[in-house]
Computed example of a mutant assay.
Amino acid sequence: MEVKIDTTITWVIKNFSSLQSESLYSDNFVAGGCKWRLWAFPKGNKRANHFSLYLNVRDKESLPIGWRRHAKFSLTVVNKYSEKLSRLRETHHWFEHKAPDWGFPEMISLTELNAKEGFLVKGDLTVVAEIEVLEVVGKLDVSEESSSVMETIDVNGFYVLPSQVDSVKRLFEIHLDLASKFRPKNPHLKTAYMNFLLSLTETLCQSTQELSNEDLSDAGASLAYLKKAGFKLDWLEKKLDEIKEKKKKEEACLARLQEINEQLTPLKQKCLDLEAQIDKEKEELLAARAPL
């Protein structure tokens, strides 16, 4: 019997609204000497109009006879726009051969999930699980696996994926007061805000040719949303203004080019007509000079 530390993982369910499968699993992650995964029912498990979510021990048959895992865990359906709207549920359970999964058949109603903005962002649903394995009976060494379910890393109080660590560190190195007035305290919501900021910075690194005016309008709304949460983003606002100005110049250049092309088209045709007339006159000239 032994004590284990907490494990935090994030699972992004892509295209949630269009899923046809009755249930689906996250990738595996390791805690307490065994493999775990999240088990989701997009249309509910014996609960109509609900999203059901469970924590499940994977490959239970491979564990030693009499294995047990006492785990305290929380599952959160993240609302990226509002900390208060995020749905958090907590429980604890002795996982064993006869009861390898435990969770919440009524995690959140589909009506609420689809009606309130922030749960489904571009069709994707984000779930965060925090698991603390309190006691382990029947130890089995299990190596870590490559997985799309990632443990998060703390960078200045923001839990981000390993692939995002360098980008977030650079933000804080360049802009020391970036989050000095950031208000939300919920770690899942903080992660959602940081992902939102990273996405916005990536968008604004695109060329004006790749960005539409609608994109820039959305970027402005996103920037206002992030500033309202307390991020200090004067530098990003300045960059957005510069991009908008460049976009105006691009559109002005395109308009002038179109106007010039419209003026040039009839002139080109006139040149072609004159060249044809010259060829005709040359033929008549040759015929006039030909000896009898």
Results as ranks from 00 to 15, higher is better:
His70Val: 12
Glu237Ser: 14
Val128Tyr: 01
Leu178Pro: 00
Lys227Met: 14
Leu257Ala: 11
Arg256Gly: 01
Leu254Ser: 08
Ala255His: 05
Leu161Asp: 07
Lys43Gly: 08
Phe29Val: 01
Ile260Met: 03
Gly103Glu: 05
Asn56Arg: 08
Leu216Asn: 12
Thr126Arg: 03
Lys227Thr: 07
Lys181Arg: 13
Gln209Cys: 04
Glu61Asn: 10
Glu173His: 05
Glu151Cys: 12
Gln269Arg: 12
Leu200Pro: 01
Leu204Val: 00
Leu200Gly: 03
Gln263Tyr: 11
Met107Val: 01
Ala115Glu: 14
Lys14Gly: 01
Val155Arg: 02
His92Arg: 11
Val78Asp: 03
Ala99Trp: 13
Ala224Ile: 09
Lys185Trp: 06
Asn28Lys: 06
Asp177Ala: 12
Val155Thr: 07
Asp215Cys: 10
Asn195Cys: 11
Pro64Asp: 12
Asn28Leu: 11
Glu83Asn: 06
Lys169His: 08
Asn156Tyr: 07
Phe104Met: 11
Ser207Ala: 13
Thr8His: 09
Gln263Arg: 15
Ala71Lys: 01
Lys35Glu: 14
Val3Lys: 08
Arg89Asn: 10
Thr111Lys: 02
Ile13Ser: 04
Thr7Asp: 06
Glu112Lys: 03
Asn213Asp: 15
Arg183Ala: 09
Ile5Gln: 15
Ala219Ser: 14
Val133Ala: 03
Arg87Asp: 04
Glu90Ala: 09
Val168Asn: 00
Glu83Gly: 06
Glu281Gly: 01
Glu96Lys: 13
Glu250Asn: 09
Pro162Leu: 10
Trp94Ser: 05
Glu106Phe: 04
Ile5Ser: 14
Lys238Val: 14
Val133Ser: 00
Arg89Trp: 07
Leu274Gly: 00
Leu19Lys: 13
Glu83Val: 13
Ile153Gln: 08
Asp273Pro: 00
Glu96Asp: 08
Glu250His: 15
